[in-house]
């Protein structure tokens, strides 16, 4: 298999005011054509000289730099490469080509409630999810009561998670997630769920992040959130940045793309 030649480096330089630097980032995925899974098909394909996959270029040379304290909204259509970019920044996917420098500790929320298991109780899930966010048992003990209070689910602590409604699960997950403290936060669409009361809590959380001058990268489809919270917008289309700058302008551009198409 071809080894990637990209690099992702984490540094901790307090004097440098750059939080994230991305240079010439490329990424492509191998998508299996017909049934290329399994040993049998792999051997058949090899014998027939078929590659068994097509290469899809998802990111085609991204360049940008995010300063500390910026609240950046990344927008773009489905399949434009936003989530792939976020996963590469988070260190989940490897950059195929290009250099990424992360300055400071980075907390990614690709999804709320990672590792939640329906067979475990609420209590057990809180500790598990906390561990995945990097909290030790002792740290979790300290914030345990606050988590349940904020989620307003105290009476369900010892119920199995499968007996929670999906809204309750999200509330619990969100309540744990906001405890995580890092220099840079990566958020992917976490706002897209929950009822009005929960939305309000999310908005308060974002407001507080903005006030604290926290560096945030938010992937979203909500132009309302972009104009309300972000200090900068980045519009990705077809794996390339087509607009980078004032959030209002980026939001307008994005909205126009759809009008144009219809």
């Amino acid at each position: 298999m071809k080894q990637p030649i990209g690099h992702r480096t984490e540094i901790n330089d307090n004097k440098n005011d750059t939080a994230i630097k991305v240079e010439n980032l490329h990424k492509s995925f191998k998508l299996p054509t017909e049934q290329a899974f399994g040993l049998k098909q792999a051997i058949f394909n090899r014998l027939r000289g078929v590659k068994g996959y097509t290469e899809q270029k998802v990111l085609k040379g991204l360049n940008f730099e995010i300063k500390k304290g910026e609240f950046v909204g990344i927008v773009g259509r489905n399949g434009s490469g936003k989530s792939t970019l976020l996963k590469i920044l988070a260190g989940i996917y490897y950059p195929e080509k290009g250099d990424i420098t992360i300055n400071g500790s980075l907390i990614p929320f690709i999804e709320l409630g990672v590792g939640f298991n329906p067979e475990l109780t609420g209590r057990e899930n809180v500790y598990l999810n906390g561990a995945l966010l990097g909290f030790s048992n002792e740290e979790m003990n300290k914030m345990y009561n606050d988590i349940w209070k904020f989620a307003e689910l105290e009476q369900f602590q010892d119920q199995k998670l499968k007996n929670y409604s999906s809204g309750m699960q999200v509330r619990l997950a969100f309540s744990i997630a906001i405890r995580a403290k890092g220099n840079i936060l990566l958020l992917d669409e976490v706002l897209a769920v929950g009822d009005a009361a929960f939305q309000q809590k999310c908005n308060d959380y974002f407001e507080s992040l903005k006030e604290q001058n926290q560096t945030v990268i938010l992937v979203t489809h909500s132009m309302e959130n972009v104009t309300r919270f972000c200090t900068r917008g980045i519009l990705i289309e077809n794996g390339k940045i087509i607009k980078d700058g004032d959030p209002k302008e980026v939001a307008n551009h994005y909205t126009k793309m759809f009008i144009h198409n219809n």
Binding site: E119, L120, L128, L132, N137
Partner: peptide
Amino acid sequence: RRNRILLKELTKTDFKLRYQ
């Protein structure tokens, strides 16, 4: 530190789930 926390919690969960 982080990997130790992860390893401990994942092992605990695996063991719990096995006999759940």
